[in-house]
């Protein structure tokens, strides 16, 4: 549980988010609006970068549920940030497949590039580095998620490149960083190399 020092006094959805929130609530039948708690928490996080207690209370009020029920959801799912994060939330996977493919190097490179450890924010408020569990991209391990984008097939060098680009205000291309197309076999196809189609024969 986090300390209270960073909790803001109040929270309000901005017009765009409020519109979306209403859309989510409308998806559920009357009396079942509590089902919208997860998308609303996500909207709050997209607006502020994290979910504050004030935000949870606003959501509880909107969905006619007890604030503790919202807090239970927000603390159960680790993807809701209960503390402020930097502009770029760098989440490095260190689960088994990523670890076997060299996530230790990625972690070391990220720590070195940002100058912070896990769970810490850089002093300029630009980056927060987190260690996360499997994000379901094992086929392109090792990987990290920065905000909504996956950066995959990393090594120490490409990790630093991505982070440095972000620091310069550029947006590096998401996806595999080793030139691979999506999750195609690295180094080109190893089977069906002489594939010809029926129509080509003639």
């Amino acid at each position: 549980m986090s300390s209270n020092s960073h909790e803001p006094e109040s929270f309000a959805f901005n017009a765009e988010m409020l519109e979306k929130a209403k859309g989510y609530i409308a998806r559920y039948p009357a009396g079942r609006q509590q089902s919208a708690v997860m998308p609303l928490l996500d909207l709050a996080q997209r607006q502020e970068g994290w979910v504050s207690r004030a935000a949870m209370e606003v959501i509880a009020e909107m969905l006619d549920m007890a604030p503790i029920r919202v807090e239970e959801v927000a603390t159960f799912y680790t993807m809701y940030n209960r503390k402020p994060v930097g502009k770029f939330h760098v989440q490095v996977c260190t689960n088994l497949p990523c670890m076997l493919r060299g996530s230790d190097d990625v972690v070391a490179a990220a720590k070195a590039a940002l100058g912070v450890g896990f769970g810490e924010m850089t002093s300029d408020g630009l980056f927060t580095l987190s260690e996360v569990e499997c994000l379901g991209a094992c086929v392109n391990a090792p990987m990290m998620q920065i905000n909504d984008d996956y950066y995959e097939d990393l090594d120490a060098g490409s990790t630093k490149t991505v982070l440095d680009a972000l620091k310069r205000g550029e947006t590096p291309k998401p996806g595999p960083q080793n030139g691979r197309q999506f999750s195609c076999a690295a180094g080109g196809p190893s089977t069906l190399t002489e594939l010809t189609f029926q129509t080509e024969k003639a």
Partner: peptide, 21 residues
């Protein structure tokens, strides 16, 4: 008076009351 809940998950789950109530 729903003021109690289980926060966190797994090993870190704690039963607690809502902070302001």
């Amino acid at each position: 008076t729903p003021v109690l809940g289980g926060l966190g998950r797994g090993e870190h789950m704690e039963i607690t009351r809502y902070v302001n109530s």
